Structure formats: C-alpha cells, structure tokens
Amino acid sequence: MQQQHWRKLDGTKLTRPIEDEVEAVLIQEKEMGHELKVCIGTDSQVKGKETEFATVIVFIRQGKGGFMYIHNETSLQKMTVKQRMLTEVAKSIEIAYALCCLFTVYNVDMEVHADINTNPNFKSNDALKEAMGYIMGMGFVFKAKPHAFASSCCADKAVQ
C-alpha cells in the first residue's frame, strides 16, 4: 500500500506507517487489558470541483471509550452519487485489507462501515447491494446506516 498520511483526532500526524502504528496500539491495548473492536469507514463531501474523502480507523475499548486515526484525501474526478459511495467503500476496504492480518493475529473483531442509507428513498441506496457484496465478498463484517457510525459519524466529522 502506498504511504498515506494519517493523523490522530487531535491533529497529531503519525510518523510511522499505519500498519506499524496499529500493531503498536493493539499490543499496548492488550497489555492494558482492554477488549477491542475496530470499525473502518469512509465518508466524503463534494466541494465545488473537489471531493474530499476521510477514512477512519475507530478503536472501541469495550466499556471504556475509544479513539481513531484519520486519513484525508482529495479527488478532482467527477462522480455520480453511486460512484462516490462505492469509492468510499473501496477506500475502507483498502485499509481493512491492509490491516486484517494484524486484527486476526491479535484476535480483534473488525467491521467495515458504509455511509449508505438502507432506505430506498435516499440516493446513496443505489450503491447498497454492490457495497454489501464488495465488503462481504472480501470476508469482512458489513454495516450500513444507521449502524455505520464509523463512516456516518466519525469520518463525517473528519471531512475537512
């Protein structure tokens, strides 16, 4: 995977690759006795000719809060709503795939969240079947709105 620039919620930039950071966190959290679950999601916002994407890796400590890492990216490619939704899913899957071996080794459950509405009255619903098939076909647990908080809440706040 190409080098991406990740940051913490407070804006601190990570100095090592995300895979190394995640492994260090998994070791540290296990040593502290925390039971973890990880949710990965992406959201986007169109601003003029640009589409801003934010991908998040959310770590949830069972009963003890959580924290996340954020990666922002901008695209000049013009996209339909469906293309944008599927691009969000592809960005989440890219990260999930890069990290899934670590989650397996450290016995951490992972979900991929899609910012897609399950209500057919919303435009994003057009991408629901493809997104679900894509995520589940990769062997990941799929969540859509209203259960997809990593993409619809966390990543939504991280889109700059």
Rank of each mutant, 00 (worst) to 15 (best):
C100I: 11
C100S: 12
C100G: 00
C100P: 01
C100T: 12
C100V: 12
C100A: 10
C101E: 10
C101L: 08
C101Y: 08
L102Q: 12
L102M: 07
L102F: 09
L102I: 11
L102C: 09
L102Y: 09
L102N: 11
F103H: 08
F103Q: 08
F103S: 05
F103K: 08
F103Y: 13
F103E: 06
T104P: 00
T104C: 07
T104Y: 10
T104N: 06
T104M: 09
T104G: 07
T104H: 11
V105Q: 09
V105I: 14
V105Y: 06
Y106K: 10
Y106D: 05
Y106E: 05
Y106W: 15
Y106F: 14
Y106S: 05
N107T: 06
N107V: 04
V108L: 11
V108E: 06
V108A: 06
V108G: 04
V108W: 01
V108N: 06
D109N: 14
D109Q: 13
D109Y: 10
M110D: 07
M110V: 15
M110N: 08
M110R: 03
M110K: 01
M110A: 10
E111W: 12
E111F: 14
E111H: 15
E111K: 14
E111M: 14
V112K: 01
V112T: 06
V112E: 00
V112L: 01
V112Y: 00
H113E: 04
H113C: 08
H113Q: 07
A114S: 08
D115F: 03
D115C: 02
D115M: 00
I116V: 07
I116G: 04
I116P: 01
I116D: 04
N117Y: 00
N117C: 03
N117T: 03
N117F: 00
N117V: 06
N117L: 02
T118N: 07
T118F: 01
T118K: 07
T118G: 00
N119K: 07
N119M: 03
N119D: 14
P120C: 07
P120R: 08
P120F: 11
N121Y: 05
N121Q: 12
N121K: 12
N121D: 12
F122V: 10
F122L: 07
F122C: 05
F122W: 11
F122T: 07
K123A: 11
K123F: 07
K123H: 06
K123G: 03
K123D: 12
K123E: 12
K123Y: 03
K123P: 05
S124Y: 02
S124G: 01
S124E: 04
S124F: 01
S124M: 02
N125R: 02
N125F: 13
N125S: 11
N125Y: 15
N125G: 02
D126N: 10
A127L: 08
A127K: 00
A127R: 01
A127G: 01
L128G: 00
L128I: 09
K129P: 01
K129D: 13
K129N: 13
K129A: 15
K129Q: 14
K129H: 02
K129L: 13
E130N: 09
E130H: 13
E130Q: 15
A131Y: 02
A131V: 09
A131S: 14
A131H: 06
A131G: 05
M132Q: 15
M132R: 15
M132N: 13
M132G: 13
M132F: 14
M132H: 13
M132P: 03
M132K: 15
G133C: 02
G133R: 01
G133Q: 12
G133P: 00
Y134W: 15
Y134I: 14
Y134V: 14
I135M: 15
I135W: 10
I135K: 05
